[in-house]
Nucleic acid binder design. Structure first.
Lengths: 348, 348
DNA sequence: CTGAAAGCGCTTACAG
DNA sequence: CTGAAAGCGCTTACAG
């Protein structure tokens, strides 16, 4: 099984043609080539290591253009590795962005690396990449993006309802002016999070107020600036939701810096995809994405898929969680403002 | 080149014997086997993928028993990947601890995974592992541990002199009572760091005071407890050095919790191997290990080694850095103490 | 414990 | 653009 001969028989060509197609030889009609590539993926062809007992290796494809692994990658990878515990299977990090030559199929690119299936950590800019890999029939599951195409496998997280629930929590504490800080560069997830915020407000008859929304760089600094910007408004919010981890930390630190008390002067809710909420003071109330779980669920499916045990694509949307910690409380009994540069208002 | 035949010729046996030795066949005398394994490693034998243009894959071996990647692994891996940028080479994560069956050589274990060389993220408990891999002649470089054996390659960091320099800084600010929090479970690195602390003190004629040293679990909680313990002493320190990242954060947070001002009541110096010092308030003064650099330097050498360009083992000790931020200042003008449970002393 | 020989899977000029 | 056939590298009963 899983030899060029086997594939040749299925497609109705010679073993030589299969070999050429799989090796990326140019003189192959694109139609037979496509048939061969998808047959190879169907039977899980590994590139013929003679009788060698090859170990199953899965790939983790990061679409980032930098070799640096973010804490987010790290959590996803931990989930992937957890899924593989006991399977004897290993994971290889693949930097597609930098490495893939344009003239080979993704299947060949992965196979040359000994990789039998891939988990793709994608973003909005790489949806076509995910489509292309899936179209070749190479075992693939996308993390953190949702697709309409029924043949594309993905595991993502929808935090909308937990964000709405977070708004409930703030409203119940007495907040009516709830600020929002979202990244300038919006992707599907952030549109989603902003929607959850608006849904939550509407549920309580509160109209989203554009003057309470700021767009910021997705960095520590960006979160800090959101504090300066919102809290120097004539009518500042009494609570604020930041939709990304680093800006959440930045907002919290900036409050300390400018002398605003958390949660006394402003209730702060962050977004966490790791453990950041637990590494700051006070412990940050946050909507949390189950990042490791994303990797775990995706890799569990991929492992079954590669072993021929999963026929259907996986299309899973995991829920977020809302964790109340120490940065939310009742609104201040007075208007709390600062100057745009962070100095107290009294010093005008 | 790099065929069983080639190895057979070098060792003076038949190709069949080489094949058996490399496949872990039991009926091979251990002496010929050893010769074959080391010859295979010398010529960079890859396990015969016929004419397939195999991609060079290096392994990252984590000796942790958990599949979770720590932030520390993440930084090391980032360095490794940075070194591999442009080389067309990939990195595979290998969990040796869980996977390796006792009856195969490390060389075979790695080769079966398509891995040509390994970076080992070791700890005190796995020095023998590093020795065993190196003895087989498999390309290997150890991170963060130092070895006497001249054939073992390593890249580690010695923070001693930067820690002594940190003590200079504190003494110059006027501190004489400088506490130390070290992990209960000491390894080479921590012995080293404690030594740097004592050296720094002696340089200023200060005798290390055992009552200012606490041993703590290497966790956030541990760092917090160090604060309670030291600051409730009859003669508490006016400054304190914590030798690990998580406890550093924990100490800082605990100070906020019990109402101690940083650096007004106590100067705090942490240890960072990533970016933690920048994610807290106030920004943490810290001795920093160039973690990404460790991975970078190690992988650069390994890449050359695997390509046959490096004949000598690498034995590199990198310096740490000392970064002054916002948590160190002159000592308080009075004795600052708390109760063991963290309540202020006045409330006794 | 080891070798000679048969066999298997893939690749690649060669031919069309 | 594709096939038949030769060739290459590794593995594995078989024999000693």
């Amino acid at each position: 099984m899983s030899s060029v001969r086997e594939i040749a028989k299925q497609v109705g060509v010679s073993a030589a043609t299969v070999s050429r197609a799989l090796r990326g030889h140019p003189d192959i009609s694109s139609v037979t080539r496509r048939k061969i590539v998808s047959a190879a993926n169907r039977v899980g062809y590994t590139g013929g290591r003679s009788g060698t007992s090859q170990v199953l290796v899965l790939g983790y494809v990061s679409t980032s253009s930098s070799p640096v692994l973010s804490l987010y990658d790290c959590m996803l990878l931990s989930g992937v590795r957890r899924a593989l515990t006991g399977s004897g299977c290993e994971v290889q990090l693949i930097d597609l962005h930098r490495d893939k030559p344009g003239d080979e199929t993704y299947s060949e690119f992965f196979t040359r690396r000994g990789v039998r299936g891939v988990v793709v950590q994608s973003d909005t800019g790489h949806r076509d990449l995910c489509r292309a890999i899936s179209e070749e029939g190479f075992p693939c599951v996308v993390l953190a993006e949702e697709f309409d195409e029924p043949e594309i496998s993905f595991v993502c997280c929808d935090a909308r309802s937990e964000i709405a629930q977070m708004v409930d929590h703030l409203v119940q504490l007495g907040h009516e002016r709830i600020g929002l800080a979202v990244p300038e560069h919006e992707d599907h997830d952030h549109v989603n999070r902003a929607e959850g915020y608006r849904e939550g407000l509407r549920r309580h008859g509160l109209e989203p107020d554009a003057s309470l929304v700021v767009r910021i760089p997705s960095s520590r600094e960006g979160g800090g600036n959101a504090i300066n910007e919102l809290m120097s408004r004539r009518e500042p919010p009494t609570a604020m939701f930041v939709t990304d981890p680093f800006p959440s930390i930045g907002a919290l630190c900036r409050m300390h810096e400018v002398g605003l008390s958390v949660p006394g002067d402003l209730s702060l809710v962050g977004f966490d995809d790791g453990q950041m909420r637990r590494q700051v003071y006070p412990l940050l109330t946050a909507v949390c994405q189950p990042t490791e779980q994303l990797g775990l669920v995706a890799a569990q499916w991929l492992l079954r898929r590669v072993n021929g045990e999963a026929d259907e694509p996986i299309r899973r949307v995991l829920p977020a969680t809302f964790e109340v910690n120490q940065t939310t409380a009742v609104p201040p009994g007075r208007v709390v403002r600062i100057q745009p540069d962070g100095r107290p208002l009294g010093a005008v």
